[in-house]
Design a protein around this nucleic acid. Structure first.
Length: 596
DNA sequence: CCCGTTGCGG
């Protein structure tokens, strides 16, 4: 082992060490030979341990050193960064500053990346100020890390300021900007930056293309989709997995599942993410069958479903009430995954929409942490099932836990209150939403309030509310009002509203049925005939409405006017019995809207 | 040492 006496050889050996065991061997030999320069190489030994995934040994040696230089600190910091331990990175960074060790470009770069992991902009800005103090303002690595931090925190204005000041811009800077604008839903700005880049004679790589594709996915322009896809092919970058996956996602998000499937089928190397993109595309477009079939196909191709594809499956279950499948997915998740709040919320939503609100509530109560969406889902769950009081009680609990409600929380709450006829509460919270929570009411909120008032027969107040709207009232508002007029026999107001509704050309046959029934109540038979004719014409084009329920693992679908179910007579008898019982307690159904 | 693919509500 004579070579060990030569420091140059040790340096080389440590750099070449590709695994933990080699590092340990070299370290042991160094100790054995009692090398005089031993101490000078400790930084290298630590770096070698750290980069070979023995961060614990590295840290131990690190702490034993009497003094630590910048390279030793950086070795540890970079290792923690690879392990995605942002707290450790920032802890060591702060210690460097305290110990008076001067950080260099890579220290600042990695420290800023840690801030991205924690979404801590304040810490990032503090680090950035230090970097400027130490003269790293024009460093591409430090600068691109800082603009990336701003971009990730949604501060594109600040990101642009850093970007514009940078004297030298590498490809990473450009792609960070393009991706920043893409994920912050500023697709036009993303395309603009890309054009600026081209003007400076720089060609994009696959990362830039991914950003462009994401930007285009948010622009409803089919020519743009095809041109960015064509550009990827032209630049010979369409064989990159991430480029292909982004293309699948872009087409799927815009409802072109045929094109998404086409790109997906042509992929030579698929991974769980690409499967997830296609599956969630099917799920978000309501294609339940394709979603579940693709999930099975994914498994048969040897890919374990990840949380993303399982969430798509849960969404599908929720859409058509597949309780049994939903339950088994819940079990699968419990066995294999951390039941985090995102998956948990998807499961809660599934139970709620599959008619098992008590299961939904039980899981909600057991959750370790709840975010805005989990609260919104559980409040909506009570709304769906007509429990306005419980929805309100949960909303109050939510406020107590200091979780800020958003426009969606109020939409769910107001919906729940309106469907339970809790008029006073609805008005109270609607007013507070505007005055205290500074949320501008949207069409949805107005529709809930109009429904709330009109349902209670307070049609004039509903009209006053509509008059107070800043925006032009839309279909949802007028339909809510018409429904109230119909149920409360408000004939003159209703006629005006019915005309408004028809002017807006609704493509929902249920709305036409409501208008038709309203005119029938007024005995305006010409109008009834007109609306019925429109409905007949629509029926040719439109898929009929249906409902479905799963019993013992079997799905029973009931399509409009379809009597083919094998237990149709039995079902009809039960419906008739329910109808009699409802009439007995003076709960009168409107049979004109029913199939029987 | 800095950038890129899929995901919970209404």
């Amino acid at each position: 082992m004579c070579f060990l006496t030569n420091p140059k050889h040790i340096k080389g050996l440590l750099l070449a060490a590709k695994d933990k065991r080699t590092t340990i061997k070299i370290h042991a030999l160094m100790i054995k030979t009692n090398l005089s320069t031993y101490r000078n190489f400790m930084g290298r030994v630590i770096a070698s341990y750290a980069s070979n995934y023995d961060i614990v040994s590295a840290r131990k040696l690190f702490e034993e050193l009497p003094q630590r230089g910048v390279d030793t600190f950086n070795a540890m910091i970079i290792a923690y960064s690879r392990k995605e331990s942002p707290f450790e990175v920032l802890g060591l960074y702060n210690r460097m500053i305290k110990d008076g060790v001067k950080p260099d470009s890579s220290t600042f770069t990695v420290a800023l990346k840690a801030c991205v992991g924690l979404m801590d902009m304040e810490m990032g800005e503090e680090i950035w100020r230090k970097a400027v103090d130490f003269g790293y303002e024009n460093d591409v690595f430090v600068g691109s890390s800082m603009l990336n931090l701003y971009a990730k925190c949604g501060k594109m204005y600040e990101a642009t300021a850093v970007f514009d000041k940078m004297k030298r811009k590498d490809l990473v800077c450009w792609s960070s900007m393009i991706n920043g604008f893409a994920v912050n839903r500023q697709p036009c700005e993303a395309v603009e930056i890309y054009r600026r880049m081209q003007k400076e004679g720089i060609e994009g790589d696959e990362v830039v293309i991914v950003g462009l594709i994401q930007a285009c996915a948010n622009l409803g322009d089919s020519r743009l989709w095809l041109s960015v896809h064509g550009y990827a092919i032209k630049r010979d970058l369409d064989f990159d997995v991430k480029v292909q996956t982004s293309l699948v996602d872009m087409y799927a998000k815009n409802g072109h599942l045929d094109l998404a499937s086409h790109v997906f089928k042509k992929m030579s190397h698929k991974n769980v993410v690409s499967w997830g993109a296609l599956i969630s595309g099917f799920a978000q477009n309501g294609l339940v069958g394709s979603t579940l079939e693709t999930l099975v196909e994914m498994q048969s191709c040897g890919f374990e479903p990840d949380s993303v594809s399982l969430m798509s499956a849960l969404l599908s279950c929720a859409q058509i009430g597949l309780l049994k499948l939903g339950k088994s997915i819940h079990g699968y998740i419990l066995r294999r995954f951390d039941f985090d709040q995102v998956l948990g919320t998807a499961v809660i939503d599934m139970y709620s929409k599959c008619g098992a609100p008590s299961c939904a509530r039980a899981i909600f109560d057991q959750m370790e942490s709840r975010d805005l969406i989990s609260w919104n889902v559980i409040i909506a769950s009570y709304g769906i099932h007509g429990h306005g009081k419980e929805a309100l009680s949960l909303f109050l609990q939510m406020i107590e836990t200091k979780q800020m409600p958003d426009h969606s929380t109020f939409a769910s709450l107001l919906w729940a209150l309106s469907h339970s006829g809790l008029v006073e509460e609805g008005q109270y919270w609607f007013d507070l939403m505007v005055s205290k929570y500074k949320i501008q009411p949207s069409e949805k909120h107005y529709a809930c309030m109009v429904d709330l008032l009109a349902r209670a027969g307070r049609v004039e107040e509903a009209l006053q509310l509509i008059d107070s709207m800043n925006t032009e009232p839309g279909l949802a508002v007028w339909v809510a009002l018409l429904s109230g007029c119909h149920n409360n026999g408000k004939l003159s107001v209703g006629e005006m509203v019915a005309k408004k509704v028809l002017e807006l050309n609704p493509d929902d046959s249920g709305i036409h049925a409501l208008v038709s029934n309203f005119f029938a109540m007024k005995e305006k038979w010409d109008e009834v005939a007109g609306v019925r004719k429109t409905m007949r014409n629509m029926r040719i084009k439109k898929v009929p409405g249906y409902s479905a329920v799963e019993v013992n693992g079997e799905l029973h679908a009931f399509i409009m006017e379809d009597k083919s179910h094998h237990q149709f007579e039995d079902i009809l008898n039960i419906l008739k019995k329910l109808d009699r019982e409802m009439r007995a307690i003076r709960c009168l159904p409107n049979t004109e809207l029913c199939m029987v």
